[in-house]
């Protein structure tokens, strides 16, 4: 019973991270039809922004030393600026480009960011213990829950509720949803395309920033490729959930979290290292079984 609950919490907290990543990717896909392979690198930048830029082996906190109330907005701001710059410099000139070009462009952005980080911070991983207080446990009777996991789950819930309220209750949110469904029609009704896309990049950046802090608190290690696996799993989640549906992205994220946790817990030991391979194979299976994912978005037009 205890181990079951623990597994459940594991699944929920891992799923939370994936859901946040998937939302960031899904939001841009919904509006731009862009599969942003650079989303993971937004996350990485959020983590590196905590320390003093230098190629020294030992990380020195910069923003990372701020009080959390200042730290969070600062990191979010940096990642948002990066995301907006990416849009302005790369994706805006490609508005009319075909989908493969967009995907390749995001691959290029990813490559540039990763190597930019190597250039500034060096290629070696660095230890960084952000918020040691979060590594403790909360005891609930016999049940001992890692604080960090609870924080992760709660943060994700708060962010998702915030995002849902924004999308549902504000005029910009409604415009974003309209643009995600039918970008051209939205523009015919006066919705400013670049503004909506900018907002999507900005929100995606905020989500990435939060993920970077949560993830870094878990691993305690900075590495220029740290966001890549997260982005891959996020993409998996988006595909499984249904491309173009934000609810789908969240569902997909939690599902992937659950699958990975289950595989980790119940695969025979000698198979455990193939966990990721199973997860990716599952993507192919889902694509074959339900090409539009579990939650079907309005059939998206390939021509647009």
């Amino acid at each position: 019973m205890i181990s079951l609950i623990q597994n459940l919490i594991d699944a929920l907290s891992l799923g939370s991270l994936y859901a946040l990543v998937a939302l960031g990717i899904g939001l841009l896909f919904g509006i731009l039809r862009l599969i942003n392979l650079a989303h993971g690198d937004f996350i990485t930048v959020g983590a590196y922004a905590l320390i003093v830029p230098s190629t020294e082996a030992v990380a020195q906190l910069a923003i990372g030393g701020f009080h959390p109330i200042l730290l969070l907005p600062s990191i979010a701001l940096i990642v948002v600026i990066l995301a907006l710059l990416t849009d302005a410099l790369v994706f805006r000139p490609l508005r009319r480009a075909a989908q493969p070009s967009l995907m390749i462009a995001s691959f290029a952005v990813s490559y540039i960011i990763q190597n930019g980080l190597i250039l500034i911070y060096g290629a070696r991983p660095k230890n960084l213990n952000l918020w040691p207080a979060l590594t403790g446990q909360i005891a609930l009777g016999e049940l001992r829950l890692p604080t960090l996991q609870i924080v992760t789950i709660v943060t994700t819930l708060v962010l998702m509720i915030g995002l849902a309220l924004f999308l549902k209750r504000t005029s910009y949110g409604v415009q974003m949803r309209a643009a995600a469904e039918d970008f051209r029609m939205a523009r015919y009704l006066g919705v400013r395309g670049n503004l909506v896309i900018g907002m999507a990049f900005a929100i995606s950046g905020v989500l990435a920033a939060v993920v970077s802090l949560l993830f870094l608190s878990q691993t305690g290690s900075l590495e220029t490729g740290l966001g890549v696996p997260l982005a891959l799993f996020g993409l998996v989640a988006v595909v499984i959930g249904g491309m173009g549906s934000l609810v789908g992205a969240v569902v997909g994220g939690f599902l992937v979290g659950a699958i990975v946790t289950l595989l980790q817990a119940y695969l025979p030991v000698e198979m455990r290292s193939f966990r990721d391979a199973f997860a990716f194979a599952f993507v192919i299976v889902i694509l074959l079984w339900r090409p539009s994912g579990l939650i079907r978005a309005k059939a998206f037009d390939q021509r647009v």
Partner: peptide, 17 residues
């Protein structure tokens, strides 16, 4: 071209912003 997942009222709202 209705925005299928938006409500009728939200669809109308998009025209007014």
């Amino acid at each position: 071209h209705v925005f299928a997942t938006l409500t009728v009222e939200e669809n109308l709202a998009v025209g007014t912003y």
